[in-house]
């Protein structure tokens, strides 16, 4: 047997992977063309919708990265908020925006390592509740700090990103989404993918097989929170006003979770498709459903779990096991 060579190592059936890459490519080409289309007098409004769709995509995909390691978190609002507040406070301290952005993201990443370190042994609902409680602690702390520090309950004003240039802001968001997709695909093709999947599907078995669970869970937390914080920076720079209640709202943890599940868990394409569909639907329904728009998210979440547990990308890969691209 040892002499036998030229034995084909079975490649994973590549069909879906190619289709997913193609779909991602099409998405980015369309998204890149969008701000250069003649959008007429609703241009500002359409660019804003586009911008927040991209932000929702970053949030959802970064949430999915963490979920891949079996950590279904309700702390995404915290990282989003830490990104937004970190950015605003750094600008206030005179740091130029190009440096404030990565610094705010790294701060959130560092905090996530602390959170991940103590929630290491929690799973399922315990983990979810602990991360929810963590978010509330961060929110109340920021809210109760003296107003001179972080604006208290009244919030903070943030200088507009790129001097308020809508197309520039949109393209920056697109670049950061591209970065997120790049990270997601890199994870998918590396050792990390196997570690995450193993931990998710059987933590103890993974350890018996030599997977350093602590290291990989923290890696997932770090990547995920840094990207979510970048989404928070975009949000802060676009809305130029942030408050604890809006930024740390439970809604900011719920939407990425629902978006990923609806689009297709543990994939790169799913969360992005989900974000596009749900965000556009939100704009269309916004005039009909004013208060309590999250009703749609609740419904989508329930229906996805009951009838579409593998999300919309699962529709064209029926019967196929494992996390595809």
């Amino acid at each position: 047997m040892s002499a036998v060579s030229a034995r084909p190592v079975p490649a994973r059936r590549p069909t879906f992977a190619w289709r997913a890459l193609l779909a991602l490519g099409i998405f980015f080409v369309l998204a890149l063309a969008f701000p250069f289309l003649p959008l007429g007098d609703r241009r500002e409004f359409l660019l804003q919708i586009g911008f927040f769709t991209l932000v929702a995509g970053i949030m959802a995909l970064s949430w999915d990265l963490l979920a891949r390691s079996g950590q279904v978190s309700l702390a995404h609002a915290a990282f989003y908020g830490l990104g937004a507040y970190g950015y605003a406070l750094l600008l206030k301290a005179g740091v130029p925006w190009g440096a404030a952005m990565p610094l705010a993201a790294l701060t959130a990443g560092f905090v996530s390592l602390l959170l991940g370190g103590v929630t290491m042994r929690l799973s399922g609902m315990y983990f979810a509740i602990a991360t929810l409680a963590f978010t509330e602690v961060v929110r109340t702390v920021i809210q109760n700090l003296p107003e001179s520090v972080a604006g208290g309950a009244n919030g903070l004003l943030v200088p507009a990103l790129l001097g308020g240039n809508s197309r520039g802001q949109y393209l920056l968001a697109l670049a950061l989404l591209l970065l997120t997709v790049g990270v997601s695909l890199a994870v998918r093709l590396s050792k990390l993918h196997h570690a995450f999947a193993a931990i998710r599907q059987g933590e103890e078995t993974a350890r018996v097989l030599g997977v350093n669970v602590v290291r990989y869970k923290l890696a997932a937390f770090f990547l995920s929170s840094v990207l979510a914080a970048l989404a928070g920076v975009l949000y802060a720079g676009k809305t130029f006003f942030i408050s604890p209640l809006d930024t740390f709202s439970l809604a900011n943890s719920i939407s990425p979770l629902t978006t990923s599940i609806f689009g297709g868990l543990y994939t790169t394409l799913g969360p992005i498709l989900g974000a596009t569909v749900l965000r556009v639907a939100e704009e269309l329904l916004h005039n009909t459903v004013k208060n309590g728009y999250l009703v749609v998210y609740g419904l989508v979440l329930m229906l996805s779990i009951l009838w579409l547990p593998r999300g919309i990308v699962g529709l064209w890969r029926r019967g196929r096991q494992g996390g595809d691209l």
Binding site: A197, G202, G322, G323
Partner: peptide
Amino acid sequence: RPFPEMTVHE
């Protein structure tokens, strides 16, 4: 305790 969502090879 196989990892249920992986292939045998994975």
